[in-house]
């Protein structure tokens, strides 16, 4: 486990240096979005892979975070930092609320409730024009800045990277504590978990709150990156993409959200510019289906094994030398 984390860190360090090699603005913008998706998908790995709950309404929290932060920083003139915190806060509250149906409902029934939640939030975004700008969009959201200094896309990339690492660190610590064990236990058998003196209700509230908070954080980070919001990125299809990221990356893997989030953000773009511009979304969905069928554990464990193999080869080489 620890080895895997070390490899993840090395991999991330390489990625951190990327903006120095390639400073194409569009590439950097995409990478930033990929990191934002990685943060969100990590939250879903926590919710689904660890705690065993499901959410097909994650775009709802993403929207809540984005519009709250945009509203408080643009209309009320609060600093971006505070806007993001408020966005996370409101998202977490909504997450607590959405955890209530999970007390009684499981799997499919729960997923239907979360779909309805996502759709209701989307409808509010479209219809609450005075706050959200509705279909006309929300303009003029301030870009990341410290005082008068405007951050560059490279700076934002590093900032997002640090946030992602911090998120992973928190998740790692939680997973390897009494809380994480309780969540994994609940994932396996909630009746037995209750008889171990653990309130599964509280755990579900916490898990939904945490993943909603990360989705809200991702939304707020996106709002300030894009500078403009419209209802499109907050639909049911985005929610299903987010779940696809978590599943393709690997639900049981700490780095599943990172691999899936980055992979499924960049893949359609590679396809689009690789001569598939009309079909890239079709091809993406086919690739995802194939991965799900043939690699039900996801890509992250696979990549982990690959790294391990490379490492072993190297260490044996040094021994013979």
């Amino acid at each position: 486990m620890k080895k895997k984390i070390i490899f993840g860190l090395i991999g991330l360090a390489v990625i951190f240096l990327f903006p120095i090699i390639d400073n194409n603005t569009y590439h950097l913008y995409l990478l930033n979005r990929a990191l934002i998706h990685a943060i969100l998908a990590t939250g879903l790995v926590f919710l689904t892979g660890f705690a065993g709950q499901i959410s097909l309404g994650q775009a709802g929290f993403y929207a809540i975070g984005a519009y709250s932060s945009a509203y408080f920083s643009t209309r009320l003139g609060l600093p971006i930092f505070l806007g993001i915190i408020i966005g996370i806060g409101i998202s977490v509250l909504a997450g607590f609320l959405l955890s209530i149906p999970s007390f009684k409902l499981k799997a499919f029934f729960l997923s239907l409730v979360t779909i309805a939640f996502g759709q209701i939030i989307n409808m509010l975004v479209v219809n609450l024009q005075p706050i959200t700008g509705g279909p006309y969009g929300f303009f003029g959201i301030p870009f990341y800045h410290v005082g008068d200094y405007m951050l560059s896309f490279e700076n934002v990339f590093w900032l997002l990277g640090v946030i992602l690492l911090f998120t992973l660190y928190i998740m790692y610590k939680i997973k390897h504590s009494h809380y994480g064990r309780a969540m994994l236990a609940m994932n396996s058998d909630d009746v037995a978990t209750e008889t171990c003196g653990i309130s599964t209700k509280k755990l579900k509230i916490a898990a939904f709150g945490f993943s909603a908070g990360l989705a809200g954080l991702a939304g707020a980070l996106y709002a300030h990156l894009a500078g403009f919001l419209s209802p499109e990125p907050f639909t049911f299809f985005e929610s299903s993409n987010f779940v696809a990221m978590a599943v393709v990356g690997g639900l049981r893997d700490m780095l599943g959200g990172v691999v899936g989030g980055i992979g499924l953000t960049l893949l359609p773009e590679f396809l689009r510019f690789g001569g598939w511009e009309n079909y890239y979304l079709m091809v993406t969905s086919i690739i995802v289906i194939v991965i799900i069928i043939f690699m039900p554990k996801g890509l992250a464990p696979l990549l982990g094994n690959m790294f391990k193999k490379i490492f072993r080869v190297k260490s044996s080489n040094t021994k013979t030398l």
Partner: peptide, 22 residues
């Protein structure tokens, strides 16, 4: 291949996207 319920959920969700784009 031992995929659970969630795998079927996500696969069909992606199928939905696929048909729309097709």
């Amino acid at each position: 291949r031992g995929g659970g319920r969630l795998e079927f959920v996500v696969a069909t969700l992606m199928l939905c996207t696929f048909w729309l784009n097709l």
